[in-house]
Every structure is written in C-alpha cells, then in structure tokens.
Write a protein that binds this DNA or RNA. Structure first.
Lengths: 105, 105
DNA sequence: ACTTACGGTAAGTTATGACTAACAGCTTAC
DNA sequence: GTAAGCTGTTAGTCATAACTTACCGTAAGT
C-alpha cells in the first residue's frame, strides 16, 4: 500500500539531493545545474527525469531552455509516510524510559 | 551540509521499509521478523544492522533473543531535512499559479 | 542558409549493495 | 555435560542503477 515510495527512493541518491537542494534556491535550467555539479550534463538530465517522475520537480519550456523547479507533491508523500510512524516511535521511546519508573509515577 | 543522510538512504530499500513498518506494530525479535518476510534470516539481521547504524532502530538483549524497536532519532533527522525545503517548495508552487509578475521597477 | 547553444536519448561500462549459504558465538533446556 | 534455539558474521554471487560518450532534435543568433 505505502510501498514503492518513489519520492523517497529518488532522494536517496546523493547527486539527486544536490540537484534538489540547488533547486531550492530557485528555478534553474539544466545547464546551470550541471555547471556547478561534479557530473556531466546528461547525468543531470537523467536525474531530473527521475525527480520529475517522482513528483519532486516540474519543468517548463522557456525558449530553448527548460526550467526546473521544486514540486511540493513529492515532499508531501514522504511527509505523510513518515507521520505514519511518528507517534508510534515516540510512544516506544517513552516506554523505554518508563521501564525503571513503573512503580513511581 | 546535511549530506549523507543515512536515515533516508536506509529507508530507500523496500525490504528495510517492510521491517520498519513491521516494527511499528511493536518491538520484535529477529526471528519473528524473518518469519513474515520474503527474505532469509541473515538478510533481516543485516538490514537491522543498517537500520541501527542509521539511528532508526535500537536493540536490547532479552535472554537468547534480541528485541528491536523503532528509534525516533532517525526519523527526526529525515523530518528536519525535509522541513528545509517545505516552505520553499510551497512558495514555488504558489508562484506557478500567480504566473507572471516580474514587474520592472 | 549555417552555426552555436541547450537539452533529451541510446548504448555500454562499472560500482554498489542486496541476497543466500555456511560458519561461529551465546543462551536456555534436557 | 550435550543438544537445540536464536542471532551475528563471512564469502561469494548477481542484479540494479549511476555514469560517460556519442548522437539527434530544436531554438535562437549571425
């Protein structure tokens, strides 16, 4: 049900995280991204395609350039999935400490 | 520099997500986890070691068994990293609908 | 028209890691 | 004591995907 989680697996790659963080400073074309990254331009293009299919970025043609920007949808799916464990994990964490103090509330 | 993000890359593996989700129902020993998973017990043990090093689970010896439970620390690091983009992404999303407005001064 | 800049696609190589099988250590039961 | 159960570790295999080089199409400039 919750599986695949394309957005999460997509951001697992360090290069894609670099691209994503770079886009957080504002929408940019592919070439500008590739210039400041340690990989070739085709690599960036491939990563952007993956990010797009995961709902993490959107693209828009502007003349001969293609502008990419962050899409909140992908981030939302990750957040929702994480929140599923948040309350449970905090409860388990509380239980771990209350073991010594069961008798004295 | 938030890079590496062990917790995020760790949860990118579908088998590890299965183990993690299983632990969300409560602390369990390794054997119980392996019984309901499509992989061997050593595989589960290896995955648990990775989850532990990422701060996503903690373990505690109980007789001859080892009980694993969810650790909120790993989840927290992911949440903090995501929040870094949350406001930015929503802003970009809003800009996409307000369309133009690059007004000349 | 040609030329240059920008970007996506194909093919091929390589490295990472997920998995199984076999072994070793430790704990409880007999 | 020995045996049986539970777990971690090692060695080795195999599949996935990240990357580069080369190529092709398109848009703007000369």
């Amino acid at each position: 049900m919750t599986n695949s989680l394309l957005a999460l697996t997509t951001l697992a790659d360090p290069t894609r995280r670099l691209i994503f963080q770079r886009l957080a400073t504002g929408p940019q074309p592919v070439g500008a991204l590739a210039r400041d990254l340690p990989v070739s331009r085709p690599a960036v293009s491939q990563h952007l395609a993956v990010l797009k299919s995961a709902g993490l970025v959107t693209d828009r043609a502007e003349g001969s350039r293609r502008i990419y920007r962050i899409d909140p949808h992908g981030l939302a799916t990750i957040r929702i999935w994480l929140d599923q464990f948040w309350s449970v994990s905090l409860q388990n964490y509380a239980d771990e400490f209350s073991q010594d103090e069961e008798a004295a509330p």
